[in-house]
């Protein structure tokens, strides 16, 4: 069985799906990613699907599950590079992929993750500045 490689670039795990995945391969990717997030301590995952000429409900569901799992593991997932024909088909199919963040390409995906991270850090700084007891 083929496996989809997971690359670590800085603080980000990059997955570029280049093959027409069997369902088993998609499930394997889901497992691999969960393990890599924990092992690497990365806070962002980018899944590039620009090479996929279709996304059916199974792959869609797998992407949604990956996003949920990584969120539990404190990592944000961005799906990038969805082709227009794929997006149009997903809309017709009735799959809106709630809970999945998307970006047009890897670069914009990385920007999105960086922005999110910065906002997160700001929140944390704010928390530190504020007194522990809030006045009503």
């Amino acid at each position: 069985m083929e496996r989809v490689p997971v690359l670590k670039i800085g603080d980000i795990l990059l997955v570029s799906i280049q093959i027409d995945m069997e369902d088993q391969v998609a499930l394997q990717l889901q497992e691999d990613l969960a393990e890599r997030i924990v092992a690497s301590g990365c806070h962002g995952v980018i899944i590039d699907i620009s090479a996929l000429d279709i996304v059916d409900s199974f792959v869609g569901r797998t992407l949604a599950t990956i996003a949920s799992i990584s969120r539990v593991l404190d990592a944000e997932t961005v799906v990038v590079g969805m082709r227009p024909a794929v997006a149009i088909t997903l809309v017709e199919l009735g799959l809106s992929l709630p809970g999945i963040r998307t970006a047009l390409n890897v670069e914009l995906g990385m920007e999105l993750l960086a922005r999110e991270r910065a906002e997160d850090d700001e929140d944390r700084d704010d928390d530190a500045d504020e007194p522990a007891v809030t006045t009503p």
């Binding site: 961005v78 997006a87 047009l104 995906g109």
Partner: peptide, 9 residues
Amino acid sequence: VVAARLMGA
């Protein structure tokens, strides 16, 4: 609009 959103726009 929904398709664009799926693509990240």
